[in-house]
Write a protein that binds this DNA or RNA. Sequence first.
DNA 1: CGGCTTTGACCAGCGC
DNA 2: GCGCTGGTCAAAGCCG
Length: 279
Amino acid sequence: MMEEEEMKIRFKTEISGDGKAPAGNPTTRTYSLTDRESTILSEFGWNLPPEIDDRNHTAARGLEPFALEEASDSTRRLLLRQDRPPSGSPVAPSPENQSISSNSSEEPPAGQPESEGRSAAETSNKAKKKKQKQCRQPRIAFMTKSEVENLEDGYRWRKYGQKGVKNSPFPRSYYRCTNSKCMVKKRVERCSKDPSIVITTYEGQHCHHSLPSSRGFARTHEAASSAQPFYFSNLQFQLHRPLSQPGHWPPLPPHFSVPPAPTDEGLLDDIVQPRMQNR
DNA sequence: CGGCTTTGACCAGCGC
DNA sequence: GCGCTGGTCAAAGCCG
């Protein structure tokens, strides 16, 4: 039961680089949601059609195993690790709470000197960080087959770190949402056993809308709203297709990779068209 | 010049 | 207690 509690929402997505979908199973999909996870998903802005929730609760347990075994040990641990909140504290704070904590812990008080040894303020900052660490945000990990590491998801990210990963030749990159009030982070790494798989882990929830002004996304988003089934990310497509309600597509969720706009011809050919051919 | 990436250092948690 | 590892910081550099 604890183990079940520890499972994160997991999606395996495939963006076929060569345009060839696996025979017989063009769009693999894995998900298994507990009630809590469904809640987390909805908090992330995912509006899953009701029939998906129903299926999850009744039949999703026995779905094909997630390709987690393809990930390195450390990655697997990361994806499966439960960030246990202190007893009694909420699992996923509301955006309001989030921005509050963001204001208090991320942004230093105005006028405070920055680097002057280890001051008391710094110590208290550490304490806050520690506390913050103890009640981590919910995580969602995506495994996406893609040659591109940095998948467009409509938000702007600032890279703040990169680390080598044990048992993996590929480094892990750490990104933070550029919105100063938003505490969402993401980790991006390649699967050590299958370099074509990019593992993206989101942590937290955005307290703002995606940036329509962000280069590329405006066009993409525009395209998405005019031809949703076509320009929806593969993730969205895969997630819904097996249970499809033809003609019904939920709103664009915030966490998923958005294929490039039509003007990015090469990538579009690679990523989107194979799915079109499959339909 | 502002925003971003890079990268070495630092820190905390965890397992042994 | 110690070493390993993940996560973060922050200075320096790059780029438009």
